[in-house]
Structures are given as C-alpha cells and as structure tokens.
C-alpha cells in the first residue's frame, strides 16, 4: 500500500493516474477542499485542517477525519509515502 498525501486541490490532477486500488490518500492543508467534491476513492482528511476551514459537516461521504497520530500510523502501514503539492 502506498500512502498519497495531497495538500492542494491541484495536487489531485498530478496523482490521479498513480493511485492504485489498495493505496490510501490523506488530504491536508488546502487539499481538504477536495472533500467538497465527489471522489472515486476513499479518503482521509486531517481534522485540524478541516476544522480550520469551516468544513466540518460539509465534506462528502465517505471522507474520514483523522488526527496526526492516525496520519503517522498510516505512514507506518504504508510501504512508502508520495506527497503531491
């Protein structure tokens, strides 16, 4: 499993072809705005960034809100991390 992080909306265009079926995606910083649109894959978003932007309750299902400790756990479960920015 590869963990992809996306920190801005434009980052999705960079990695959309690179996300394999068993990969995971974490949205952080301005990347959390991607949670406003329907997405083709399940996704996590950093809770602090979602709260800071007033997006709690506004994100599409099934975005899962996570803390930094969950982010660290995902990194340890992944074989490697790709950051899209």
């Amino acid at each position: 499993m590869i963990l992809h992080t996306i920190n801005k909306v434009a980052g999705l265009a960079l990695c959309q072809h690179l996300i394999a079926a068993d990969d995971k995606v974490v949205l952080l910083e301005d990347g959390v705005y991607l949670g406003l649109q329907p997405l083709a894959f399940s996704i996590c978003a950093i809770r602090l960034d979602v709260e800071a932007r007033g997006l709690v309750g506004r994100l599409k299902e099934p975005v899962e809100l996570i803390d930094y400790s969950d982010f660290v756990s995902l990194c340890t479960e992944a074989d490697k991390i790709c950051s899209w920015f």
Partner: peptide
Amino acid sequence: QACLSALKFAKAVLASGH
C-alpha cells in the same frame, strides 16, 4: 502551511513512539 504541518507531524511521530 508546510512547516507548521511538518512540525505537528514530527511531534506526532515522537508521541507515537517512533
């Protein structure tokens, strides 16, 4: 925001025992 996010991540790495 990168250096702030990185700091929060770094603190969580240590807090998780890594």
